[in-house]
């Protein structure tokens, strides 16, 4: 795992004890702790990419980490364009890749 949350018992900053929460990412459970952002939960669990770009189909995740670059956009509970680095995760949040191509819909994809 490249990115990870520091285990509370090994953290010199001594954060309070974990209060686990689970978010659902493209159907899979990912566990974090209360107070984390969605990006924090994902990175903390070793996930570094959760968006696919519209044009090139390239993977993206966090870049600026402070809400400026809009690279980390996700769909949260059906609402697109939520900055994962700013939104605090709630237990049960359903998170989806908003850049993925439409799944079997009849609408034409924008071409350029």
């Amino acid at each position: 795992m490249t990115s990870q949350r520091i285990a509370v018992e090994r953290d010199p900053v001594e954060p309070g004890p974990d209060r686990p929460l689970t978010i659902w990412v493209d159907g899979e459970p990912v566990t974090g702790t209360a107070g984390q952002t969605i990006a924090g939960v994902l990175l903390g669990a070793g996930r570094r990419q959760w968006r696919t770009t519209r044009e090139g189909g390239a993977p993206r995740g966090v870049f600026c980490g402070i809400g400026v670059c809009f690279d980390c956009l996700v769909e949260v509970n059906g609402l697109p364009d939520v900055r994962a680095c700013l939104r605090r995760a709630q237990d049960g949040d359903v998170v989806a890749d908003q850049g993925a191509p439409p799944s079997g819909g009849s609408l034409p994809e924008v071409t350029s």
Partner: peptide
């Protein structure tokens, strides 16, 4: 643009605000 490239501020924000290590 590859995942794993961060602005320096992101690394710091994640370390301070999330206690997340962006890499090993």
């Amino acid at each position: 643009q590859l995942p794993g490239v961060y602005s320096a501020g992101a690394a710091q924000a994640l370390a301070k605000g999330e206690r997340v290590a962006v890499g090993r």
